[in-house]
């Protein structure tokens, strides 16, 4: 890929809301950017074979801590979001450290993290007196819903630019990890933990680093989603379904390429929206029906995802000629 292409693409995305101001497409774009960021956060660790089904939990903590701190403590999201992120990172470390220390890998890691997102979901539901339970929860509006202090903006353009910035940071982090020593360490670990440890890789510490990083980003995505939508419910930001949704989108887009999760988000969200607009309430369930079939087909036939497979297709001729 040529070096200037990302800059051109970035400039186009940046200029977009000033040229094109339709609220609905802009809303879809914001949603896509926020979820892209969440999916990117998942793939930061997912690409090393650390399949976590607990990210729904991290996202839920991010969203709910921010909203609860605002409503009950009148803590500005400028402080509440870091608080939520730290809480989520602490939760991740608390569960992940013993996991890695006692070498719980593969299926078992997925199941432990599954239990974690189950816990977060049930706690949110159980404390319904404070969190509204499964009916959802709304952060209180402040000064008509547009205030820098409350991190609430009624203007879609502002949200678009915020989401775009956060998404770009997500991609930057992904690429930083991609070029770091951490990546080599983690790839060695995912191949063979014993061999990696024997060559001097600190297995537990490296895995913990990437998990906490990933949980931090996911919590930020949750907080952002909460501030933008001004409504959160356990079903949309937490729990096992959200975890699976993340995994699914990333697998479709491609785990091993930086834009994979973004493409995954674009495809899944557009698919859901098109079905919703095209069929209205009759479409309930159809989007997931298509997702499910796609997910199975992708894993069987295109395990590298759309972007990954395209990239391979582009490279292949070069290999054969050399």
């Amino acid at each position: 890929m040529t070096a200037y292409l990302p800059w051109v693409g970035g400039a186009v995305l940046l200029a977009l809301p000033f040229v094109y101001r339709q609220p609905y497409p802009l809303h879809i774009l914001i949603i896509i950017l926020i979820w892209s960021f969440a999916y990117t956060s998942w793939s930061v660790m997912g690409r090393f074979g650390l399949v976590s089904l607990g990210h729904g939990g991290f996202m839920g903590v991010g969203a709910y801590v921010t909203a609860l701190a605002w409503n009950y403590g009148h803590v500005s999201p400028w402080l509440g979001v870091p608080l939520a992120v730290v809480a989520s990172a602490a939760l991740a470390a608390l569960v992940a450290y013993p996991c890695f220390r006692f070498r719980i890998t593969g299926h078992y890691f997925a199941l432990v993290t599954l239990a974690l997102s189950g816990i977060v979901l049930q706690v949110i539901t159980a404390t319904r007196d404070y969190t509204g339970g499964s009916l959802g929860y709304t952060p209180e509006r402040y000064q008509g819903g547009s205030s820098l202090w409350a991190f609430q903006f009624s203007d879609k353009t502002t949200w678009y630019l915020i989401a775009l910035a956060v998404w770009a940071v997500g991609l930057y982090v992904w690429n930083r990890v991609d070029r770091s020593m951490l990546r080599y360490a983690l790839e060695a670990i995912s191949e063979d933990e014993d061999a990696a440890a024997a060559t001097g890789v600190h297995v537990t510490a490296e895995k913990l680093k990437i998990t906490v990083l990933s949980a931090t980003m996911t919590a930020l995505a949750g907080a952002l989603y909460c501030q933008y939508q001004m409504f959160i419910s356990p079903d949309t930001v937490s729990g096992i379904a959200v975890s699976l949704q993340m995994v699914f989108a990333v697998v479709v887009g491609g785990i091993y390429v930086s834009l994979g999760p973004t493409i995954g988000a674009v495809i899944t969200i557009l698919l859901a929206e098109i079905l919703r607009i095209g069929f209205g309430t009759r479409a309930v369930g159809w989007d997931n029906l298509v997702y499910g079939v796609l997910l199975v087909l992708f894993i069987i036939f295109l395990p590298k995802g759309i972007v990954g497979s395209l990239r391979e297709l582009r490279r292949r001729p070069r290999w054969t000629s050399s």
Partner: peptide, 19 residues
């Protein structure tokens, strides 16, 4: 992990097929 995810796809499929 791929096997687990593929059956996750089946989960989505069956759930929404029932819906």
């Amino acid at each position: 992990i791929n096997q687990l995810l593929a059956t996750g796809g089946v989960l989505f499929f069956l759930q929404s097929a029932a819906t």
